[in-house]
Nucleic acid binder design. Structure first.
Lengths: 347, 347
DNA sequence: CTGAAAGCGCTTACAG
DNA sequence: CTGAAAGCGCTTACAG
């Protein structure tokens, strides 16, 4: 078998010779063309097995023009190490690869950060049929680059795009924020603030803020926001927001944080200041990253259904390629109750 | 530009016509062949830019036989969700993709878990020039599958292989374990136990145990191990090991845990039993996963240099493909001191 | 149901 | 330094 890889390459002609049929019949038989008779197919398959033959995908793709491949780009911050990419995107990446595989597609993956090395001409190079872009919205240069790609006619789908007009999938942020806020209210918290950002390109934060504010209003409570400093690392954004909140002197007994990564910083800062969670202050995050389960204390959060997220992204892209519309945009989220927030009052 | 993707495909013949040269000159010019004169190259490059032309990689690969692509397989447990893959492997995956990109290679990524859908004939299908396998050693069927691939002549490199005879890269486990043990000893801990596994395929655990035992011996201390139950999830392995340790009645004041994931369970169990860390018991993990930084308390650990790990894996594979030997096998690790262990005595 | 032939778009000896 | 031509290994009309 080593010979098959190292020496003369086995082609469909070799299989044809062994099976006693023509090369075109080999191609049809292995592609599963129903026009081939069953006895012939059996002979061909057996010959291919004996010779350890596999179709050369480059030749097949050159001929058909289809690649059966999806490119996935993970955008990170320019200064960020690859080991420090938000684990949320790693989980999403895993789900996308799995979903693509379920649909019979290969995935080529690329981490992109520096504006001078952005790459995405996958379709022009016939490396992929389309592109899924995920990752931080903090890297504006990257988002502008991929937006342009789409305008040039490439097939692209996004997770949580900063641009509303693109083909995107997002968490059900509105419903999730309502769930989080309702959960805190039910637990007896009243002075609930929201750590968010409305100046950032991160539309998801705005959507979460709106859901929170809406639910607060329904209860006759006043929504109040603390804006993060986008220039800091996520964790430090959380620390600083808590410092700002306390410096502002407005009383609070719970915090809805629009991102788990930021919430981890919030928990650290509260801990260091001797403020006990969940007794003095309840905290709820958003995203369901696994670090939350080991935080001080374990973080209540809203977790999107990653498997659905992967499948929806892949299916949306495949439909876009096929020229069919796909209305689905929102991934369902569920509340994961942990120790950073009390349970419903009286429980 | 949209036309370039949607309508007639732009080829090197179109570029040749616009630049007023032959198709072969276009190919040479864009490939950077130094035989092409500078004025000619400039004209060709400009024509390609105008037409938004990119080389069809399928045609190029068919012709050259090289793919410029590395396949990366992440093995997970059969029952495991893709969102639950050990974050260590996600960090490693990011580093591998980055390193491959630095070497001018594309990466196709696949998550593999179920034994009936294992896939890896990347070279036979001419999808990649070689394969890097990372992930849990708990999935024995998967490791056997990829081992066989290598025996069939495929180019494969592994992270932390259960098989010593394969071409692998691992953390410098021996040195790391010595660092961890020395750190605990310096802090004044004496009854230091090691949570590990010697029956498992995970050779790295054995290597860490050996380094720990060696360092203990040098200090005249008795090494003692607690074996994990491989059937459990990593976190539960840690919880159970602590329970076993306490049930055994042997005194301990520090634990060196051979994996961060297991250590997170250890911390939770100690916390729930009211055992304070680092005062009553010091804890050190291994792997440098980011969740450790948010654990109760933040986990002291040994972190491999992920960037080196990615580069070493890619370079080892490329050398294997080129038929050249590569002696490098060990990735340097550094001690990351956090609150789960005291500092050196008197500090 | 099967076969002979064209052609996908490149790279690279070969010739000049 | 540049061009004409062969050929990589398939898929798929077309013919029978």
């Amino acid at each position: 078998m080593a010979k098959a890889l190292r020496g003369h390459r086995i082609t469909s002609f070799d299989v044809a010779a062994l099976a006693g049929v023509s090369q075109s019949t080999v191609s049809r038989a292995l592609a599963g063309d129903p026009v081939v008779s069953e006895p012939t197919r059996t002979r061909v398959v057996e010959a291919a097995r004996q010779l350890n033959y596999y179709v050369d995908e480059n030749a097949a793709r050159l001929r058909t023009g289809r690649t059966g491949t999806i490119a996935v780009v993970v955008i990170s911050r320019e200064e960020e190490d690859h080991a420090d990419v938000n684990p949320f995107y790693f989980s999403l990446l895993g789900a996308i690869c799995a979903a693509a595989s379920n649909r019979g597609h290969e995935t080529i993956v690329s981490f992109q950060a520096r504006p001078d090395t952005l790459a995405g001409r996958y379709e022009e190079q016939r490396k992929a049929d389309g592109l899924i872009v995920i990752g931080t919205t903090a890297n504006r240069a990257a988002w502008d680059y991929y937006r342009e790609l789409g305008e040039d006619g490439a097939h692209v789908c996004y997770w949580g795009s900063p641009f509303d007009d693109l083909d995107w999938i997002r968490s059900d942020n509105h419903q999730g924020a309502r769930l989080a806020t309702g959960h805190l209210i039910d637990a007896g918290y009243r002075d609930i603030v929201c750590i968010t950002s409305d100046g950032s390109p991160q539309r998801q934060f705005t959507e979460r803020w709106v859901g929170y504010a809406e639910r607060m209003g329904e209860e006759g409570l006043t929504p109040r926001d603390v804006q993060i400093d986008e220039r800091l690392a996520r964790e430090d954004q959380g620390r600083k927001a808590v410092a700002d909140l306390i410096a502002g002197g407005v009383p609070f007994d719970a915090i809805f944080v629009c991102s788990d990564q930021i919430a981890l910083g919030v928990l650290l800062e509260l801990h260091e200041r001797g403020i006990t969670v969940p007794d003095q202050v309840g905290v709820v995050g958003f995203d369901g990253i696994r670090s939350g389960a080991y935080a001080i204390p374990p973080l209540t959060t809203l977790e999107p259904d990653f498997q659905s997220a992967g499948t929806m992204l892949v299916d949306k892209l495949l439909k876009q390629i096929a020229g069919r519309p796909s209305p689905e945009r929102r991934v369902p989220v569920r509340l994961v109750e942990r120790a950073s927030s009390r349970g419903p009052k009286g429980t």
